[in-house]
Write a protein that binds this DNA or RNA. Structure first.
Length: 263
DNA sequence: ATGCCCGGTAGAACCGGA
């Protein structure tokens, strides 16, 4: 069972590339972030046409998450929850569309797009940390249900120094502040397994390359898209990887897809 | 020291991203 996460950076702009990736790699489950689409603009018919079913949670212009499943291969989605129950950054703002949870053929899937948190320090960084604490609470609830679970998406955290091409260049970024890393480490201390790290213990694997300053051509990237596994799923982990070549195609997202294969 | 490039939305000497 192949389960993937992909920050697509705009579903309208990315649709041809996204369809192409689904047909080439055919994941059982694909979690998408930054669809940047309102609910009624989600191109569900394009996914159904290639045998996928979908649920989605969007908002205007920013954020937005979706879960796709390969219906042709027999996978079905049962939505469990949308949103973590945490208000937006501004007073009176509703919840941002950053979290969607579902069961797919007996596996709990939690698809998330964690706040970036820049600039640091400041209210946006505080919001990021609050969001991470709320996520940790929800992960504890999932853990207590004792279902096989995969928590995956764009965490906007560079966990270790060997997860970034240059520590110096990114030192002041919210993605690798000690507080961000400590919050991420708490997920692992709670017992969740970082699948990509398990398969690449020495680091050096990137999932994001900036559009600017020739970052892709110079391989100036870092790892912020993560797949966390409950113990039952970790025992079934067969392989994990990044579809790096997709970052180099025309009209690509600035993130590459990340995936695991579970027995 | 700053911006580089994108997408979305608005029609910006825009914003947010990471």
């Amino acid at each position: 069972m192949k389960i993937a996460t992909f920050n697509i950076n705009g579903i309208k702009a990315r649709l041809p590339r996204l369809i192409e990736w689904l047909e080439e790699t055919r994941p059982a489950v694909a979690c998408l972030q930054e669809i940047k689409s309102q609910d009624d603009g989600f191109p569900v018919a394009d996914f159904e046409a290639i045998g996928y079913t979908a649920i989605w949670h969007g908002q205007k212009a920013f954020n937005g998450v979706a879960i796709l499943a390969d219906k042709r291969a027999g996978y079905e989605i049962a939505e469990v929850r949308r949103g973590l129950g945490i208000d937006g950054l501004k007073d009176g703002e509703g919840e941002q569309a950053r979290y969607l949870e579902a069961d797919v053929n007996g596996v709990r899937i939690a698809c998330l797009y964690l706040p970036n948190g820049n600039p640091h320090p400041g209210p946006k960084f505080d919001y990021k940390l609050a969001w991470m604490e709320r996520l940790r609470e929800r992960m504890a609830e999932i853990w207590a249900e004792e279902v096989p679970a995969v928590v995956l998406g764009d965490f906007n955290v560079i966990p270790e120094d060997d997860d970034v091409w240059s520590v110096k260049a990114m030192a002041d970024d919210a993605l690798m502040q000690p507080e961000s890393r400590a919050a991420y480490a708490r997920f692992l201390n709670d017992g969740w397994t970082d699948a990509l790290r398990t398969h690449n213990p020495r680091g050096g694997v990137w999932t994001y390359w900036d559009y600017q300053a020739g970052a892709w051509q110079r391989d100036h990237g870092f790892r912020i898209d993560h797949i966390l596994l409950s113990p039952e799923c970790a025992d079934r982990l067969e392989s994990a990887g990044v579809d790096k070549a997709h970052r180099g195609r025309e009209k690509a997202s600035d993130h590459a897809p990340v995936w695991v294969r579970l027995r």
